[in-house]
Design a protein around this nucleic acid. Structure first.
Length: 460
RNA sequence: GGCUCCAUCAUCUAAUGGUUAGGAUUUCAGAUUUUCAUUCUGGUCAUAGGGGUUCAAAUCCCCUUGGAGUCACCA
């Protein structure tokens, strides 16, 4: 069975980069009928934020990812970590170190000054004497002193680390007894039966340490897949400073989960020339072994394109539902089908769509200066009046085509081009020169409101 | 700075060692549309540089350059 996990530290909202690794882990687990675990890495109590786990779950819910079982909180598993640390102590694979923090810092400073690598000097590695009084010990694991550790990575290939370059007897439990990251990750992944670790490649250099823990504890190694980072336009790791990194921000900006997920899955992964992937297709096609080795730059233009694609192809009923979040309530509107059909092809986001809808539904309070100048000329008045009269004399106006017919008649009568009536009418109805088709707009707001808006412009 | 990773259009990417280096987004031009948008058609744009190996290199090897990540009693 394939077991994957997403293991964020609860420092805030769900990050867009986190969502991507979560998605990939989720896809791989589901594709194999396995399990996808959500584990909160909250062993550093000073940095915990209780709301964070909830925020992550909320974001998962929005995009439709679902984890299996209960959320695992590392803070509630401290006894387990202590047990395994003790086991290593008992077996002589770890030891207590009484070196004070200040002394360690001083040592590091010296080493750095000498241009050496900062590392612990193993002074307590084989200590058998009496421990110094009044000092709290940390627990250090005995890391190999020489040789190399190879990470067999499903994305990067075999990555060899020289022990002398990167390792020392690193701390697995702090002086206050709480365990540290590299220790708990290995313990938990092993205990929870995680078979495939899919995570950001910023963790690649941690992996040798975790392998040391796995081996000391006699746990079998999982498969590792270190997926490349998402970069910002400057080519750096995406961070909070880059603006929209909170997944839930995408909801407020009017993106759909389908578009966001589709966008993310195509960063660093592809399937031939295919651009559009439904969740079903992702589940059928995704394989972590196909992930690219290089980082990709996050750019919103493609996201926008995907989002408009999904918007265009969404049933009106669903659109109606989603628009409520953006303050547009259409359930009981009898012309909502015409309205939605008229706006769905011209909006990149739900926010834009909501704006478009309001521009149709709400009588314009003012007329755009430039639009007036360009679209409402001297001759326009008479044309609008003629059109208003024609409207009043028509009956049974319901569909856009009915209104279109009236326009045609007037245009023919006055022997003018469509533009001569379209421009001023557009100014009257919408207050500006762009927007949905006029026949649709009139069908949506009805004859009375159409006449009222024309009147308002004539009196302007 | 040490260690590690990475390198195809502006961006996301495709290409059993053999293709006029393909697609998508963006952009530009044209068509459609009373407007805007959509849609359609077409165009511009790439194998970082240098050495090898090979009949043949985007693809394999080496070097250079550039970029990124990471080096805690954070995760």
């Amino acid at each position: 069975m394939v077991v994957t996990r997403f293991a964020p530290s609860p420092t805030g909202y769900l990050h867009i980069g986190g969502l991507r690794t979560a998605l990939l882990s989720y896809l791989w687990a589901r594709r194999n009928g396995g399990k996808f675990i959500l584990r909160i890495e909250d062993t550093d109590f000073s940095r915990n934020d209780e709301a964070a786990a909830l925020a992550i779950v909320e974001a998962f819910k929005w995009v439709g990812l679902e984890h299996d079982g209960e959320i695992e909180y590392q803070s509630s598993r401290l006894a387990i970590y202590q047990e395994y640390a003790q086991k290593l102590l008992d077996e002589g694979k770890a030891y207590k170190c009484y070196m004070p923090k200040e002394e360690l810092d001083a040592l590091r400073e010296e080493q750095t000054a000498r241009k050496e690598r900062a590392k612990y000097d193993n002074r307590y590695r084989d200590f058998t004497g009496t421990p110094p009084e009044g000092l709290e010990a940390v627990i250090r694991i005995k890391a190999p002193l020489e040789g190399s550790i190879t990470v067999h990575d499903g994305v990067k290939g075999d990555v060899v680390f020289n022990v002398a370059d990167i390792l020392d007897d690193f701390i697995i439990a702090r002086a206050d007894g709480t365990p540290t990251y590299n220790f708990v990750v290995a313990v938990d992944d092993a205990l929870m039966g995680v078979t495939d670790v899919i995570r950001g490649d910023d963790h690649l250099s941690n992996t040798p340490k975790q392998i040391v823990v796995y081996e000391a504890l006699g746990f079998p190694l999982p498969k590792f897949f270190h997926v490349p980072m998402i970069h910002n336009s400057e080519g750096k790791k995406l961070s909070k400073r880059d603006g929209a990194t909170d997944v839930m921000m995408y909801k407020t900006m009017g993106y759909t989960p389908e578009a966001l997920l589709n966008f993310l899955v195509r960063l660093g992964w592809s399937h031939g020339d295919q651009e559009i992937f439904s969740m079903a297709e992702m589940l059928e096609l995704f394989d972590p072994r196909d992930i690219n080795r290089s980082a990709s730059v996050y750019n919103t233009e493609k996201l926008d394109w995907l989002n408009s694609h999904y918007l265009k192809n969404m049933p009106n009923e669903k659109l109606c539902e989603l628009l409520e979040f953006h303050g547009v309530i259409l359930v009981s509107h009898d012309k909502k089908e015409i309205l939605l059909d008229a706006v769905k092809e011209r909006a990149k986001t739900l926010v834009e769509m909501a704006t478009l809808i309001n521009e149709v539904l709400v009588r314009p309070l003012e007329f755009d200066e430039a639009a007036l100048k360009k679209g409402y000329k001297e001759e326009s008045k008479a044309i609008l009046e003629a059109f208003a009269t024609a409207l009043k004399n028509s009956s049974e106006l319901h569909l856009p085509s009915d209104y279109h017919h009236v326009m045609e008649t007037v245009v023919a009568q006055l022997e003018i081009g469509f533009g001569k009536i379209g421009q001023p009418l557009r100014v009257a109805l919408l207050g500006k020169l762009s927007g949905p088709g006029l026949d649709s707009v009139m069908a949506i707001i009805g004859v009375e409101e159409t006449l009222a808006r024309i009147n308002a412009l004539l009196k302007h």
